[in-house]
Design a protein around this nucleic acid. Sequence first.
DNA 1: GTGGTGATGTCAGTGACTGGCACTACTTAG
DNA 2: CTAAGTAGTGCCAGTCACTGACATCACCAC
Lengths: 203, 203
Amino acid sequence: MTPVTDGSRYPPGVPRSGAEARRRLQQAALELYQERGFDRTTAAEIAARAGVNERTFFRHFPDKREVLFDGEAELRAALMRAVAEAPGGLEPFEVLLHAFRDSARNLEDDRPFSEPRWKVVAATPALRERELAKHAWLTEAVAEALRQRGAGDGVADLAARTGWAAYQHAVQAWVDDPSEGLSEHLRRAFDDLRALSAGIRSG
Amino acid sequence: MTPVTDGSRYPPGVPRSGAEARRRLQQAALELYQERGFDRTTAAEIAARAGVNERTFFRHFPDKREVLFDGEAELRAALMRAVAEAPGGLEPFEVLLHAFRDSARNLEDDRPFSEPRWKVVAATPALRERELAKHAWLTEAVAEALRQRGAGDGVADLAARTGWAAYQHAVQAWVDDPSEGLSEHLRRAFDDLRALSAGIRSG
DNA sequence: GTGGTGATGTCAGTGACTGGCACTACTTAG
DNA sequence: CTAAGTAGTGCCAGTCACTGACATCACCAC
């Protein structure tokens, strides 16, 4: 009997929910990116470590980068919800400070889990590019949420862009100096932004 | 006589400065990206239209995206120079407003030439990603220039990030409404930023 | 005209990603 | 309990981005 395709080497007993394979692929990818670096890791290697076929990798993720950026849709939704649920009567930047602090809590809780991911992303140009694209996407979501809160188009866009920039500054400061909480860094970032802006002579 | 490799099909009479081929490749790439879209354009097609070998394309540009992002080093240098040469005694944001207006002049002059490029970039996710990476690179340059002007690390980073965000907002506003100059949009962006920031309650 | 240098052409090869088809596990209607 | 139906996977062939190695060609200096 000549060896024919057996159709599946997927481990027996493991439910084929798809979510399982997905998780294993993410885990395997992160490990390999840490061990060998992103560039010297092939999709086939990731799939092998996850116990699936290379083709399956690309069924779960559109490309090698995206495997590290899962859950951005949830983050976007959470961010928009936080903006929407901020107390009424607040100025746009105060709304953002409120929303970012919300997001900050998750960030601080997940730090031990997501720190290795950060390091890999920070060390890999291709992954930083993707991250910046995700941030642009999130910034648009923030602007949209501000609009839904009644802000004008111009104000919403400007506040979202500059507010996000301040947020990123705070995150960076927090990574460099974790002795203070992200919430404190955020507070200081917006305060400093206010001080800086006060130096603009109008006209 | 069997046909052997002739070594070069580079058009005779054309000097091999390299800069010539480079320009032709950029032109061909932009044309093809406009006609068929970035994704359905192969590097071989670009090279063919430019009259060179595919390999030559990758000698001039590290990848298919970079061909549309030439001269960023000069832009970076010009930006840093503009920051350095801003009048003394100005607040950080005023320095940036000054520098961005400088950059804005070039942007407005080159508009007819660079507008098709913008459209292609805006329409192609892969190219937008690259553009965001370039912007991050330029933002770091601005921060560095502010530091060389005596600004502290924290202030330089925050001002560069938020200032760049305001700049991008202004550029977008200008593209949407060219009836006013970019310089005016910039002025308004920074004024609006000041007004927004004034709404932050410190603490 | 001879040698050096820079730009190119040619070829082979790796790896990301895709389409198509077959197969298997889990679900649901009957 | 059996028969579709569906979702998740394996397998294969193919395109294309990109790279390394080597030969060839144009131009410049001596």
